[in-house]
Simulated assay, not measured.
Amino acid sequence: MAAIDDAGAKGQMTEKDTISMQLVREALLQTCPAGEPDAGLLARAGIDPSHLHLPEARVSAEAYAQLWRLLARRCNDEFFAMDPRGLRSGSLAFLCRASMAQPTLGAGLETALAFLSLMLEDLQPTLVRQQSLAEIVLYEPREQPRRAFSYFTLWMIIHGVACWLAGRRIPILAIELRCAEPPFCDDYRVMFSENLQFGRARTRMIIAADCLDLALKRTPEELQRFLAEAPGNILVKYRDPASLARRVRRDLLALDPAQWPDAEALARDLCLSASTLRRRLAEEGQTYQGLKDGVRRELAIAWLSEPEPGITEIAERLGFADSSSFYKAFRKWFGCNPGHYRTLSHGRD
């Protein structure tokens, strides 16, 4: 359910790519409502049914991808029967084929969202441009919000296709959802964005608008390969929450940026040598500086999503010399200024 990597197949799923068994249970909830899940179906996906109710159990991304295919085939619905109309088998192929014929990602996304709005009854996604930011808003006729799994499944489809169309990962600045936060949210933060906001007035995903101008150059052969590998090629960005990089990121988020240790002090805290720390992070495709930069961006977005603190205080807390330096960095990160982001974040609640 995570975003597709670069051109759609830059990485392959490995043993480290795992997904919480909770998401398996969520996928089965709508398709097996009458009783116990089909043990034979789980076995065909390579999932041990006896592990289904173990709190800490995880499955490989490949097993989850296979379960996805089996469930879609079983109920003839690529949205797991979570909408009165649903997405009949072949919907993803039609959506991609229609979208890739458009000149830009913005036009391709609008085509994809129009198709989803036509097919689905309860979730109507629409692209809204807001100067240097863009949001994909889900309009819903129901008063009661849907399950978080339903929202994130749709985000997986939309974001995964968008990244494939563009041939690169489209960074998600924030996702806001009407529903309450589920107890297994760590997986969603790994898959989509650290900045997830629950209990909001509407459900939407916020991205930088400049990516909408990217030209589309997908070929029929690339489409065939993408569909043959789906949804596994959409899951490859998932990374094990138990990885060293995830642990370092969590530790950084728990500290004020002024208290972040240097690499040598961090290595000592982890009972590692500095060279071992660098090597192990490199094996996960990370650097300590890169992790610090990423957390700084996450904190900036999270703090701007709230009414306080002020932008000058945020700049100071993040370690910038002044608010002007913060403005320049934020525009470099996200293509807009922090004041505009804060206005968009609060203007529609």
Results as ranks from 00 to 15, higher is better:
261 P>F: 01
88 R>Y: 02
214 L>G: 02
294 G>T: 02
105 L>I: 03
323 S>D: 11
133 L>K: 10
173 L>D: 04
76 N>H: 11
184 F>K: 11
333 W>M: 02
2 A>S: 15
100 M>C: 07
92 L>Q: 10
301 I>A: 12
275 S>D: 12
45 A>R: 10
346 H>R: 14
72 A>T: 12
70 L>K: 12
126 T>P: 00
285 G>H: 06
243 S>T: 08
179 C>G: 03
210 D>V: 01
128 V>M: 11
329 A>E: 10
275 S>W: 06
172 I>K: 09
35 G>L: 03
64 Y>P: 00
169 R>H: 07
250 R>L: 07
188 Y>L: 15
227 L>M: 12
68 W>G: 07
54 L>M: 08
75 C>M: 03
76 N>K: 07
187 D>Y: 15
338 P>D: 07
8 G>Y: 11
306 E>Y: 04
303 W>C: 00
57 A>I: 08
193 S>F: 09
49 P>F: 04
165 L>C: 07
142 R>F: 00
197 Q>M: 08
180 A>Q: 15
91 S>T: 10
297 R>N: 07
100 M>F: 10
239 R>T: 03
172 I>A: 09
72 A>S: 14
87 L>I: 08
180 A>Y: 03
78 E>L: 05
94 F>N: 11
217 K>V: 03
71 L>H: 06
342 R>E: 04
292 K>M: 12
66 Q>D: 10
49 P>C: 08
80 F>T: 09
123 L>G: 00
22 Q>I: 00
329 A>L: 05
118 L>H: 15
142 R>W: 02
162 A>Y: 06
319 G>I: 03
256 D>N: 14
222 E>S: 03
4 I>S: 15
147 R>L: 11
109 L>F: 04
157 I>L: 14
156 M>F: 14
96 C>K: 05
308 E>V: 04
244 L>T: 05
329 A>P: 01
37 P>K: 10
73 R>C: 05
304 L>N: 08
266 L>K: 05
110 E>Q: 14
168 R>F: 01
318 L>C: 08
102 Q>W: 02
73 R>N: 09
296 R>D: 04
283 E>Y: 02
256 D>V: 00
137 V>A: 09
242 A>F: 01
213 D>S: 13
232 G>A: 14
